[in-house]
Computed example of a mutant assay.
Amino acid sequence: MKYLIASLALIASPLAAQDFSEGSNAKSWNLYAEVPAKFDAEVVDVLCTLTGDCPDDCGAGKRQMGLVRSADGVLVLAMKNSQAAFTGAAVELAPFCGQTVTVDGLMLDDPELGANNVYLLQTIQVAGSDPIKANKWTKNWAAEHPDAKGKGPWFRRDPRVNDIIAQDGYLGLGLDVDQTFIDENF
Rank of each mutant, 00 (worst) to 15 (best):
G169A: 00
N25V: 15
Q99K: 15
A89M: 11
Q83S: 14
T123R: 04
Y32V: 15
G114Y: 10
D104E: 13
D57H: 06
A85P: 10
D183F: 05
E22F: 12
Q18I: 02
K133W: 06
W137H: 09
V43C: 07
G59V: 06
Y32D: 11
L106I: 11
C54N: 06
P159L: 05
K27H: 13
L31T: 09
Y119F: 15
Y119P: 02
W154L: 15
L106A: 02
R160S: 09
P153G: 13
N25R: 14
S21P: 04
V126Q: 13
G169V: 00
P153Q: 09
V74F: 00
V68W: 06
C54R: 05
N135E: 14
L75M: 15
E42T: 11
G61E: 00
P153D: 00
W154G: 03
Q125V: 01
V126W: 08
L31F: 05
R160Q: 11
W141G: 08
Q167I: 05
D158L: 11
I132A: 09
Q83I: 11
K133H: 07
I165C: 04
V126A: 14
F155G: 06
K149Q: 14
L175R: 04
L4Q: 07
F96G: 08
L67V: 13
A115G: 03
Y170P: 01
D72V: 02
L4E: 04
G88W: 03
D178H: 05
V177L: 04
N140P: 00
L120T: 06
R157Q: 08
R156S: 14
A94Q: 13
L173T: 09
L47M: 14
E34S: 01
A148K: 13
A143G: 10
L8M: 12
C54S: 10
V103T: 12
T49K: 08
D53H: 13
P111M: 09
L67N: 07
C54P: 11
W141N: 10
W141E: 07
I11Y: 02
F20A: 11
W141Q: 10
W137I: 10
N140M: 11
P111Q: 08
D130I: 02
D178A: 01
D40I: 02
D57M: 03
K2N: 13
N185H: 15
F39G: 01
A90C: 08
C54M: 07
C97G: 09
D176H: 05
S24I: 09
V118N: 06
V103Y: 03
G52T: 01
C54V: 12
L4A: 13
V35C: 01
L121F: 13
G172E: 04
H145A: 10
I164S: 01
P14N: 09
D178M: 01
V76A: 03
D56A: 14
M107D: 07
L113M: 14
